[in-house]
Amino acid sequence: MSEQIPSTELSGYYAWTHTLQGVYYGPGSVSTALPKLLDTLGASKALVVTGNSLYTKTDVVKKVEGILRDQNRYAATFYNIGGHTPISGVRAGADAFKESGADIIVSVGGGSPIDASKAIIFFLQEQLGGEFLRQIAIPTTLSAAEYTVIAGYTDEASQKTTVSSPYLAPSGVILDAELTLATPETLWLSTGIRALDHAVENLCQPFEIPPLKHLCYGAIVDLFNYLPQSKADPNDIHARQKLQVASWMSLWPSRQGYSDVGLSHALGRSLGATYSVPHGITSCLTLAPTINLKAKVASEEDKQWLAGALHQLKQTSTGSLEGDVVKLSVLIEELVSNLGLKTSLDRYDVPREDLPTIAERALRGRNENHRDVVAFLETLYSSP
């Protein structure tokens, strides 16, 4: 194992992303926030980038298009972005942008269209030079892609790859809970677990600054409280808005961006595109066992941060640091189960013989033991 890196630095630097001009939030906020952001950014025509289902099965994109038309700022809509952001969609989206006469992208949907928009901007800058184009993100899930400087997409070999730049983070974000009502329940709740994955793993990420860790504690509490409420009443706008803000707190934007991922996220990347496991579902599979493993292998400082989540959740201590981390993993597992999100690797036809390769890809540059990770992946199959 390589040397443990402290997860908290008591000296360092923090700043906003290079690009972010504002986050607007609140039910119904898109109607006023979108024109304000376009004015702030001096944008004249927008290409809307979204997914096929959101475009054809809901009126969410039509509402955004209507606001742009009212402002005489609508160029076109590109809606061929698939799950895990295939490179073919990114290339086609870049062509659509050039053909539309737009000077800004408005992405609508989950992590795939938001990441696709970042990748489109990245490749257009490579092709055309000059300043990076800008994006306004209107998320309808809780995956939090709108706060990072990294664009993840799937290459021709069905492997997840990334590009990054300080200028890729969206220039504006609009969190309007009313636009999430059409999001399918499993997608909404599972991306909530994805946000929980961000918050929990950021407690023991290398060099994460202390104020952001305390924001993550707040995110953990709200996700535990409001995900069950949202499942019980899918039309509860208050719960949905709370969850959108919790997602924001789980991955608070900074100039440093999101340069590293924890083991659960790394396993999600290794599983997701190759085996068509949705982003949120990968966190439902891997987060709880990853935290269980942390009870054995994490540094004392990281265990203290993880155990501190129990206090935030008003849970009693087990009396030991390792026991408290294990208890946190059990609470996460129970939350996933209570939300109806418990699943297995065989449900997605992941062959057992692939587990060593999955673990190896996820562990590049990491401290955890390959054998330990393969062992916990083995437990993620249905009982015979």
Results as ranks from 00 to 15, higher is better:
265 H>R: 06
133 L>P: 03
179 L>K: 09
32 T>I: 14
219 A>T: 09
78 F>L: 14
67 I>L: 13
319 G>S: 10
180 T>P: 09
158 S>F: 12
108 V>R: 05
110 G>Y: 05
199 A>N: 09
372 D>R: 02
280 G>R: 04
189 L>S: 00
151 A>E: 02
350 V>C: 01
34 L>T: 08
104 I>V: 15
379 T>W: 01
205 Q>Y: 04
365 G>T: 08
323 G>E: 12
7 S>A: 06
162 T>E: 09
315 Q>S: 13
271 L>A: 00
348 Y>H: 05
75 A>Y: 06
133 L>E: 11
319 G>P: 05
90 V>E: 00
316 T>F: 10
36 K>V: 14
26 G>I: 10
208 E>A: 14
230 S>A: 10
182 A>M: 11
356 P>E: 11
235 N>G: 04
119 A>G: 13
323 G>V: 14
185 E>A: 02
236 D>N: 13
20 L>W: 07
374 V>W: 03
107 S>G: 07
318 T>A: 11
82 G>P: 02
190 S>Q: 00
224 F>S: 12
16 W>I: 06
211 P>Y: 09
360 E>Y: 10
277 V>E: 00
84 H>L: 07
209 I>R: 14
103 D>K: 09
123 F>Q: 01
351 P>W: 05
180 T>V: 08
49 V>K: 06
85 T>L: 07
290 T>S: 13
166 P>M: 06
381 Y>S: 02
351 P>Q: 03
171 S>K: 13
375 A>E: 15
223 L>Q: 06
246 A>H: 07
370 H>E: 10
370 H>I: 05
12 G>I: 09
347 R>Q: 15
162 T>G: 13
193 I>Q: 01
53 S>T: 03
115 D>Q: 02
269 R>S: 02
351 P>S: 01
371 R>K: 15
284 C>L: 08
189 L>N: 00
295 A>R: 10
